[in-house]
Design a protein around this nucleic acid. Structure first.
Lengths: 347, 347
DNA sequence: CATTTCTACTGTATCGTTACAGATTGCATT
DNA sequence: AATGCAATCTGTAACGATACAGTAGAAATG
């Protein structure tokens, strides 16, 4: 029963305290390298007892497959690339997303690689790089446009990915999104319930898909609850100083709104500054509703009515979706939308 | 001069639109794979004209070395691991650091991999993982303690790294730090120049190295400018609600300070809330100085006197330091300290 | 002219893993 | 006794790059 004549594969020595490889395990178990490899991935043609033995030795040695070896042989990188826009970031938005993603990845062999880019520059560049160098098994992108060229390219090339935000051009792909339409609609409701009727909207840049969602929610809200819009000609991507100045001018004008809906937490800070600069007070002269991804607005002005977008949860969802997509799950099944929660909106 | 009989190495075909490898270039130039490899790394035993020819073809093909191949053969991962603490993060602290790092890395073959961990759990775990699996060429860590076991381990194992913060136990290693001593000293100065004499300090947790720096700067400041300390029994790591409550109690007491120095931007938000809850006003009843890494405090209360810590710059410095260390530069030469800047402190 | 030296290039083996095509054994079937 | 057939196990080649030990030819040396 003893196997003699083990020349080809497992001939060499275990060489002391080096990192263990399949060869080490093969040597220790007296098996061939191939057998060990197949045993560890629970292949059907390996005996149950052998598998058990191999697993024990592997655990004992603290064996971890060499990523470069696997990657070279199979092409599997065990990497998820997170493409981040470097500009927008003021609050801990992307950190939260990173942490959400890594929570999910921590139980898997996947690592997370950050690929940043300036969204004023070519947003295709990082995606192209990842595709050209096959440097990831999956990709996560944000700031999605209705007919996003990155989504097209990734789909076309068969690269698994998930998006934070939806497209709107007949493209089917995994995504996680916040229900911005519901948010805007409910925001108007909150304001009207507080007796506000003349409402301004600080909206996202119009090229992003959720601009439309915000608009629709806002407008149906105005209609449903009988309010009107006070136009505000600036968007959430503008420099904070610009937002403050424009809001201040608006609030000083005869046409000042008595309610503001704000689509981003960092912008809300600037809006608030504009309001105060105009000598108005939240809760008295007007109310403001804002979305936020980090619970910070309430610390600044408790009067701001906030809807929470759980970005960490978004990270988790997208990580799960990408991995599922890598495992061949259909994109249709990997789409989710999270609802706004209103931690402090006393009815 | 034409080379015939090219059997062993460059025999196989270029196979159409696949990703180019050394073999592709070898085939196209009629050279051996080894020659191409050496030509691309500018080895001295390759002819000048040949090098030029190889480089042209490589550029033409858009050749990028296969990372798995390099890594398997040489052990070089071309990865910098950023170990991030997942808990502390409220503001965009770590995002800024990530972006600073990637700014530097973008001109290099290095990728940045995020390795998060909860600092309530074992902080050695991610470092051990990186060492055991040799999964990076360099490491960046933060939240440094005076005798940090991670620094010891990384040094002992010869893994290049840089820290955000210093140690204080005779360990020599690359670091970038903010001059917290200068900050605290100058903070006291600012307060005293505004006529404040009874000053509280919201300090970092005492196990971190910069606790001592803050304390020393604060205390020499008190001494130099003739002020006294009002004790505050909470640190910047505490939940924001706790900070607010404790500050509120302090501000309502007979012993309330007329100045506060705050060592972290997010905590300052809670401190401000506590002050307001106690019915006090910044600029009237007291002044506050705070460090911040993202320019947000001034939007909240312009009265807060802020010192800017440029975390993005810290990221850049650390990235440069790690790479230099990988390239063999002595640790002594890779240490830097940045000074606080005071964007809004009217003299 | 023979020998050494130098320049410029090349083949082989190897890193750790896995796909693939066998090989060995025992046992049931004819 | 020969054959077929699972059930297990194994060697070889390959992924792409590079360290190393060459080799061929030209030029310099004696």
């Amino acid at each position: 029963m003893e196997n003699k004549g083990n020349f080809g594969q497992a001939a060499s020595a275990p060489t002391a305290r080096e990192r263990p490889t399949l060869k080490t395990i093969a040597f220790m178990t007296g098996l061939g390298v191939t057998t060990v490899s197949r045993a560890l991935k629970d292949a059907p043609d390996i005996g149950a007892e052998t598998k058990e033995r191999v697993r024990m030795v592997a655990r004992q040695l603290g064996y971890q497959p060499n990523r470069a070896g696997v990657r070279l042989r199979t092409g599997k990188t065990n990497v998820i690339a997170l493409v981040l826009s470097i500009d927008e970031e003021i609050m801990g938005f992307s950190s939260q997303m990173v942490f959400g993603i890594s929570e999910v990845l921590s139980g898997t062999p996947y690592h997370i690689v950050i690929t940043p880019h300036s969204h004023s520059k070519d947003p295709m560049q990082p995606v192209r790089y990842i595709l050209d160098t096959s440097s990831a098994d999956g990709v996560i992108i944000s700031r999605i446009e209705p007919d996003d060229p990155r989504v097209r390219l990734l789909t076309e090339r068969g690269m698994p990915f998930a998006t934070h935000g939806r497209t709107d051009a007949g493209l089917t792909h995994p995504f996680h999104d916040f229900d911005n339409e519901a948010f805007a609609h409910q925001a108007v409701e909150k304001l009207v319930k507080r007796g506000r009727r003349r409402i301004a909207l600080l909206q996202p840049p119009s090229k992003l898909t959720y601009y439309a969602h915000i608009r629709i929610g806002f407008q149906t809200g105005l209609h449903d609850y009988g309010a009107e819009e006070v136009p505000l000609r600036v968007n959430t991507d503008a420099p904070l100083a610009d937002i403050r100045d424009i809001v201040e001018v608006m609030m000083r004008s005869a046409n000042a709104p008595d309610g503001i809906v704000c689509s981003a937490g960092s912008a809300a800070i600037a809006v608030n500054a504009g309001i105060e600069a105009a000598g108005k007070a939240l809760g008295r002269d007007l109310d403001m509703v804002s979305k936020q991804s980090v619970p910070i607005l309430n610390w600044i002005r408790p009067e701001i009515i906030t809807a929470q977008e759980d970005v960490r949860q978004a990270g988790r969802e997208m990580a799960k979706a990408v991995i599922a997509r890598i495992d061949g799950v259909e994109p249709e099944l990997l789409q989710s939308i999270s609802q706004p929660t209103w931690p402090n909106s006393g009815r």
